[in-house]
Amino acid sequence: MSEVVSGVSAIPNPFLEQIGIVSEEMHDGRARISLELQEQHMNSWQITHGGVLMTMLDVVMAMAGRSLHHDQKGVVTIEIKTSFLQPGGVIGGKLEAKAQAFHQSTTMCFCDGEIWSGDKLVAKAMGTYKYLKSLKSKASLQKMGGTD
């Protein structure tokens, strides 16, 4: 894994920066992120798009799993099961996602995640993540993705 500075992942992620997700905490199998909701996060009904919620859950659970292994470079998502319990919020609101790793093997970890809007539980998820050893080069990544 990359270094962890003040309990937060130091891995740069342009996609998450573009969305506006903020890493709040990452240590001992736990993680927490937040998002200030803006117009670009809304669907046609002007509530938080489900893809934003799924992204938050995937990220926070992966962070929880990564926090258990400082020698690992990261994790890849194997599967996620999500239940949407109520609308995720509107422009000007704030969402907080929390996760914990509840089981791990030498190659995989299993995590629970939740998204909260204030005191309202918006979504719950369970995810399976595979620990990823360091890839040697950009060429290795391209091979993995099936491109030349």
Rank of each mutant, 00 (worst) to 15 (best):
H70A: 14
G74P: 09
I80N: 12
M144E: 13
L35R: 01
S105Y: 04
G65N: 13
N13R: 09
I78N: 06
L85N: 08
L95N: 10
T82G: 06
K94W: 04
M126A: 11
K133D: 15
T82W: 10
A31N: 05
Q46I: 02
E36H: 07
T55E: 02
W116T: 10
M54Y: 10
M56G: 03
G50L: 09
G7V: 02
Q86R: 15
R30K: 14
E36S: 08
L16R: 03
K98M: 11
I33Q: 01
G145T: 02
T55W: 05
K124A: 12
A97R: 09
E96I: 15
L132E: 11
I78A: 13
I47D: 04
S9G: 03
C109I: 04
G92Q: 11
S83I: 00
H103L: 12
D71V: 08
A125E: 05
V5N: 06
A62V: 01
K94A: 09
P87E: 03
G65C: 15
L121V: 06
K120Q: 14
I78E: 03
T128K: 13
D58T: 12
E39L: 07
V8P: 01
Q104N: 10
T106E: 14
K94S: 11
F15Q: 04
H49Q: 15
A62W: 01
K73W: 12
V75N: 08
T107L: 11
S105N: 05
G118P: 09
F102E: 13
E79W: 08
Q38I: 00
Q72Y: 05
G20K: 02
H27M: 04
K133N: 14
H69G: 03
N13P: 00
Y131C: 12
G93C: 10
V59L: 04
D119M: 02
H41F: 06
H27Y: 02
D148H: 11
G146D: 12
E114G: 01
V22S: 07
Q40R: 15
G88Q: 06
M61F: 05
T106W: 05
I47R: 06
T106L: 14
I91L: 09
N13G: 01
M144R: 13
L121I: 04
G50M: 08
I78K: 07
S67A: 06
E25D: 10
V22N: 10
S137I: 04
A123L: 07
G146R: 15
K81N: 14
I47C: 01
T48Q: 04
K81H: 14
N13T: 00
G113I: 05
H70F: 06
M26L: 02
S44F: 05
E96L: 08
E24K: 05
S134I: 02
N13K: 02
K136Y: 01
Q104W: 06
A97E: 08
S140R: 10
M56L: 07
P87V: 03
W116R: 06
Q40Y: 10
Q40A: 06
Y131G: 12
V60N: 10
V8N: 01
P87N: 02
A97V: 04
A97H: 05
M61D: 08
V8E: 04
T55F: 03
S6H: 09
A123M: 07
S137H: 08
A125Y: 09
H69R: 15
W45K: 11
L132S: 13
G65K: 01
D112K: 15
